[in-house]
Design a protein around this nucleic acid. Structure first.
Lengths: 133, 133, 133, 133
DNA sequence: GTGGTCTAGACCACC
DNA sequence: GTGGTCTAGACCACC
């Protein structure tokens, strides 16, 4: 399994692993029930420390993206609404607010931001289609 | 001047100051030409160290949100398009993609996300109107 | 007298005055014997503090760009080789070295820098000719 | 690692560190991939505070001269063209103009300045050759 | 008055 | 181990 890890990024490596797995799932490249590599195996493939992968797996399990079946391995979870959904929806709203602030400082008005949103959405749909083909 | 600082947040305090000032400017609560409190004065109001405020001011100056008039004080800048606008617009698009991934894991489909976007936008407009009244 | 002063610049205001006068002299816009405005008069024209102008005049006198004739006024000096010429030539060489370092980090090789030097020189000559016309 | 730091200089110490590292890279004394000393180690070698070195490293990272690998150390970056190259080339041209003004006040004509430029360039090349030998 | 820099020493996240 | 942040208190240049 390959994931785009950049050790030079200011984003912590474990967080990059978490985000990359979430993106792969969102795009349908990984599906519920798919087996994830063992911690040490993925670490070796990405040439990062196994502790870093272990931490990422813990985070992904907390977010119910993966399920660890002790002694059997790690798998993409069958998605169910997670208990703290409301909190996370509020978090998404907070990030939308951050976009509005950033857009203001770029002298991008709300209509332009909305359009950028829709353009990005179209690109995203196309990537998903290609990933699943 | 009051800014919402949370010393327990994982976000660095100086970054919280930067973000709070940018938000206040985006909402119109601070306008071009307005005087900012002196470094030590704001530090005392927020009960944080003056070095932390100084670092926030330097960051805000680099982002052209404020202007430092040597020996005279600090003021909200008259906003001008920044030279690296394209790079920052790409950064906004990248953050929109993150929202799309997060939404998927919350079983929020694209229509629901778009609606959340628009609801948040309406709230934002209202806050701005109140701030300017 | 008008000089391009920007209170927002990181360069100290008194230094901006010094540099602007030196530039005007180098271009021939101010000539030996020309009378400089009184400290308070120039300060009022530039809307800056008179102490700031006074400090600039002291610096210019030290560099033998102007001469203060007590009770009579301040004048552009008749240029003579200054005693610390060698030290200042070394300073120019040091600044050329800084340009070489900067050019390297811009992936500009020595030939390109030399060409930029010559282009800038041609522009400079043209400006001088226009200023003197 | 030794860098020429002068605590009496009007140039801030952190800036001296930044400039010295840029010079070492430009001369080929430091090459892409080379490991930089740890912040606290360099601080102790230069007998300055670790915060001062940390600030210099942050500045160098922003200028893409070094790369920070989180938790692993700091390395000289593989140089890539920076996005704001045009702005920085203009800055170099502005500094060449300053040299022309300074040369005028030293009664150095343009030919002499050009010659000083070329002499300095020759010295620079020689230093680089020695550094790389 | 203003912001900028530096030291000393602490604590933290990350790998 | 690594770099990043924060406080406390000092000193400085500039206006």
């Amino acid at each position: 399994m390959w994931l785009p890890i950049d050790p030079r990024s200011p984003k912590p490596v474990y967080q990059q692993v978490v985000d990359a797995v979430k993106e792969a799932v969102a795009k349908g490249m990984l599906e519920p029930g798919d087996r994830m590599p063992a911690v040490r195996e993925l670490a070796s493939q990405l040439t990062i420390n196994h502790n870093t992968v272990a931490r990422a797996y813990q985070e992904l399990e907390r977010d119910r993206v993966i399920e660890v079946l002790r002694g059997r391995g790690t798998f993409i979870a069958t998605s169910r609404p997670c208990p703290d959904r409301d909190a996370r929806v509020r978090a998404v709203a907070a990030r939308i607010r951050e976009l509005l602030i950033e857009a203001h400082h770029l002298q991008m008005n709300e209509e332009e931001l909305l359009e950028l949103f829709q353009v990005t959405l179209r690109e995203w749909r196309q990537e998903r289609r290609q990933a699943q083909a």
